[in-house]
Amino acid sequence: MASEYKRYARALWLLAMLCACCALSGCRRNTAGGVNVMGSTSIQPFAEVLADEFNSRHPSSRIDVQGGGSTMGIQSVTNNLAQIAMCSRELKSSESRYLKPIIIALDGMAVVVHKDNTVSNLTREQVREMFVGNITNWSQVGGEDRPIRLITREEGSGTREAFAKLVMNNQRVSRKALTQESNGAVKELVRGDRAAIGYMSLGLVNDEAKIVNIEGIVPSTDNVRNGSYPLVRPFLFVVRMGAVLSPAAKEFLEFVLSPQGQHLLVEEGLVSVL
């Protein structure tokens, strides 16, 4: 029976070693130049491009980009779980008291419809009336006779909040609107539904959906930059005021605002702040 106890003991040892390994590997991640960047799913794909490039230039450091949403990112920075938050809406006044926003790029917000939709221009007023639920048929805005299917984002999404501010004048979005939880899901719906209208980050639209001109203005990079396109929001990186950033985090922020970093963002469809 003694051997049995030896086996127990060995098993316990093994367990202890495993725990130790886990704990140690956890430590390693935090100490050796790791930076957590967390927040908006709209900014996430762009931040990942930046992080990949940065990581390949600085092999010793590691930038981890995670989604979760603007508000979640801000909470994580507040609770010190992440050093940098990504935020696709402007900071609320309660937040800007202790957080510092850094504008990394401008993003146009695109109003998207199905590729075969004949409507190619809408006014902000019309978009608002649609999303409030007063305009319910495409024929009312010069399109085919087809009921309008609204697609909105979930409560708390940075894209939704920006849309509420830029288009809705804080009127409520109709209850009938379908709610999707990511830019990708909105795009997927618009791609397949001829009656659909949705809104999403301009940088993430591809040729699967049609972008509607707003007030007759094409949402091009130039028009976003010179301010003539009305639906523009800033993409923010947010850090805590007075927080001591790790060298890697500081370098990453510098890289993002450098011409190379901005060039990457422009290539991905955003508008540079330089």
């Binding site: 949403g69 508000t71 979640m72 909470q75 979930e154 409560e155 708390g156 999404s157 709610t179």
Partner: peptide, 20 residues
């Protein structure tokens, strides 16, 4: 279309704070 209790929680949990 509908929203269920579970999807209401999962959709908004990531963003919610305070009373929400």
């Amino acid at each position: 279309p509908v929203r269920t209790l579970t999807s209401n929680i999962a959709l908004e949990m990531g963003y919610a704070a305070g009373d929400h």
